[in-house]
Amino acid sequence: MAKFSEIIEQHPTVLIDFSAVWCGPCQVLGPILKEVKSHYADQLSVIKIDVDKNKDLATQYRVQGVPTMVLFKEGQQVWRQSGVLSKEQLIEIIDKHH
């Protein structure tokens, strides 16, 4: 698998979902992110990061709770939020930065 930094630099817009298997809200967010991904097709990469398997990355991005979503535009972090958002809310946020 490519390094995290390579992924966010190679794709113009990347939404990272920091989550955990045991997290109920993360499971709710999963299908919402799939819908958001299909809305944007190839214009958006959505990457799920398991905080238990990637503790260093979670620490680097100061993830305090899950789910935490971080949006990168051309390699730069442009937005982040913890908690579950609706498909419509996420599309509105991504459109603002897209």
Rank of each mutant, 00 (worst) to 15 (best):
G30C: 10
A41S: 15
G24Y: 14
V84Y: 00
I32Q: 02
S19M: 11
P25H: 12
V84W: 01
F4P: 00
I7G: 02
P67Y: 13
Y40F: 12
W79V: 06
Q10K: 15
G30S: 10
D52K: 06
H39S: 10
A20Q: 10
L71P: 04
T68I: 05
D56E: 14
Q10I: 05
E9F: 02
Q43D: 15
Y40N: 00
Q60I: 12
S19V: 01
P12T: 14
F18T: 03
V84I: 15
K48P: 00
G75I: 05
V78G: 00
C23D: 08
D17A: 08
W79F: 13
Y61P: 01
G65H: 07
E35C: 03
I49K: 01
H11A: 12
L15A: 03
I47G: 11
L29M: 11
P31L: 08
I16Y: 02
Y40W: 08
E35I: 15
I16R: 07
Q27M: 08
D52T: 08
V36G: 00
V70C: 00
P67W: 12
G65I: 14
E35N: 08
S82I: 01
E9P: 00
E6W: 02
L57K: 09
V84N: 04
Q64V: 11
Q60H: 11
A58C: 13
I47M: 15
Q64D: 13
D50R: 10
P12V: 09
Q64W: 07
L71Y: 10
V51H: 02
L33W: 06
T68Q: 13
Q76W: 07
I32S: 03
P31D: 10
N54Y: 11
T13Q: 03
G24S: 04
V28S: 04
A20N: 08
Q60V: 09
R80G: 02
A41V: 10
V84S: 07
D42W: 09
V63C: 06
V51F: 03
A20K: 01
L71W: 08
S45V: 15
V28N: 07
Q76I: 13
T13M: 11
G24R: 11
D17Y: 01
C26L: 03
K48Q: 04
V28P: 03
W79D: 06
K37R: 07
C26A: 09
E74S: 14
V66T: 15
T68L: 08
P12I: 09
K73A: 09
I7L: 13
Q27Y: 10
H11K: 13
H39V: 12
Q27W: 02
K53F: 09
V78R: 03
L85M: 14
L44K: 03
L85P: 07
L33S: 00
I47F: 05
P31Q: 09
L44C: 09
Q27I: 12
I7D: 00
P67Q: 14
W22C: 07
V46M: 03
N54W: 11
